[in-house]
Write a protein that binds this DNA or RNA. Structure first.
Length: 113
DNA sequence: GTGGTGACGACAC
DNA sequence: GGTGTCGCCACCA
């Protein structure tokens, strides 16, 4: 594939884009899905470059293991929280309410090999 | 080619 | 149970 962008970044973006409306996921879950479970940091970096993705990446649905909106500082103002609340997700004290219930990790197993 | 960095996670104390 | 520390792997200067 002649992808100019790194395949790892692309994986993170695709997995993030698979998160359905009103659901959230974690960096570790994505890291585990791309095969680098120990590199949850890399997921955050990939989302930080989500503007490079050729499609819309709901990065606001990705929070840390504690359900905290650690990445909201990278959004203009409190857009991240507004987007989550717009989807019916209650955010209190920068933390997703009922995060454990809204947590979603049912990645589509796209086995092409 | 090397060093530093980063939207985190797990473990130790 | 909170805090501190290390690890981790790809990107950027």
């Amino acid at each position: 594939m002649g992808d100019d962008l790194s395949n790892l970044y692309m994986k993170v973006w695709e997995l993030t884009a698979q998160v359905p409306y009103g659901r959230v996921t974690t960096y570790g879950a994505i890291a585990n899905a791309i095969g680098s479970k120990s590199s949850a940091r890399f997921v955050g970096i990939a989302l930080a470059h989500c503007y490079l993705a050729p499609f819309y990446v709901p990065a606001h649905r990705v929070v840390n293991r504690n359900g905290l909106l650690t990445g909201r500082h990278h959004f203009p103002g409190n857009q991240m929280q507004e987007l989550l609340e717009n989807e019916g997700i209650k955010v209190i004290d920068n933390q997703v309410k009922k995060f454990k219930e809204l947590f979603w990790q049912d990645w589509e197993e796209k086995q092409c090999e």
